[in-house]
């Protein structure tokens, strides 16, 4: 009897320790840190205060960066859905040698470091990069692309696409091809069949894809760091600067926690809205 009671605890222990040690403890420490005062001459104070929260939430500079982070993450998610879903559909319609080849093409970028890819984009988008050279050759005025939000979104979409395409592809795999054929035989045009029958059934895949893409984009560090430059900051680069350049760790911790909370709220709300509908029908 006693072993029966202990066994479950022993079984969950490794996972629980890992979770506690690597997620909860640092999170709690960050929370505590964010409540300490800070003085530029003496450093972190032993007292507790909500001053950092007040400062961040009332400063347009920080709110502007939060808003930019949210905008870029949302735009990246939208573009990834627009490109990734059709990409996955085309992939699911391919015959076998090609399907494996193109699946590899989609996953391939994941095998290259994000930093390397960000440098690649900065070379392409730079003022004398390939894109600008091509535009000049076509007689168009050269435009500043590097260190703009556009550059960040382009690079993020490139990095995040597999995270959208693969969940959608997985849910397409589960689809009975006869269901689409049934819609056709009932008089639906191929486009209507796609819109009315295939699309609703891959919502779950698109939902999980969107959550992954949004979460990763909102907390992206290397890409905004390398393609946004010093001026164009996103949440993660802002936190980094507070810690490493300003040395104001409590303020950095406050921003990190606020971003985490905002991210959680947005994702949960989104999940609720879409999933509630999809769950009811698809089970």
């Amino acid at each position: 009897m006693t072993t029966n009671r202990v066994t479950p605890w022993l079984l969950v222990a490794p996972g629980a320790v890992l979770f506690l040690g690597l997620v909860l403890v640092p999170l709690v420490l960050t929370g505590v840190l964010s409540l300490h005062g800070y003085n530029h001459t003496t450093g972190i104070q032993p007292d507790f205060t909500l001053a950092h929260y007040r400062a961040v939430l009332s400063d347009d500079y920080y709110l502007g960066i939060f808003w930019r982070t949210f905008r870029i993450a949302a735009l990246t998610t939208l573009i990834c859905a627009l490109i990734g879903a059709p990409e996955a559909y085309i992939l699911s319609r391919m015959r076998d040698p090609w399907r494996s080849v193109f699946l590899l093409v989609i996953i391939g970028p994941l095998l290259v470091s994000v930093v390397v890819r960000a440098f690649g984009w900065s070379m392409l988008l730079g003022s004398s990069g390939l894109v600008n050279q091509a535009m000049q050759a076509l007689g168009l005025p050269s435009t500043r692309l590097l260190y703009t939000e556009t550059a960040i979104v382009i690079a993020l979409v490139h990095v995040m696409l597999p995270f959208m395409a693969i969940p959608v592809w997985t849910s397409l795999q589960k689809l009975d091809p006869a269901v689409e054929a049934a819609a056709l035989t009932l008089g639906a045009s191929p486009f209507t069949a796609l819109r009315r029958v295939v699309m609703p059934q891959v919502t779950m895949g698109m939902l999980s894809g969107s959550l992954i893409v949004f979460g990763l984009s909102a907390s992206a560090f290397a890409i905004p760091g390398l393609l946004g430059g010093r001026r164009l900051k996103m949440a993660a680069t802002l936190v980094y600067d507070e810690y490493m350049h300003e040395l104001n760790w409590p303020l950095g911790a406050t921003i990190a926690l606020l971003v985490l909370i905002a991210n959680l709220v947005i994702m949960l709300a989104y999940n609720r809205a879409v999933e509630a509908r999809a769950r009811r029908t698809l089970g």
């Binding site: 819609a183 056709l184 609703p200 999809a278």
Partner: peptide, 27 residues
Amino acid sequence: PNKRGLGIVFQSYALFPHLSVAENVAF
């Protein structure tokens, strides 16, 4: 196939899982 107007019952039934019985039939 969408111009033939024939009625087909597939071996797997191929019902639309995201639509109710009435919506399936009304499609």
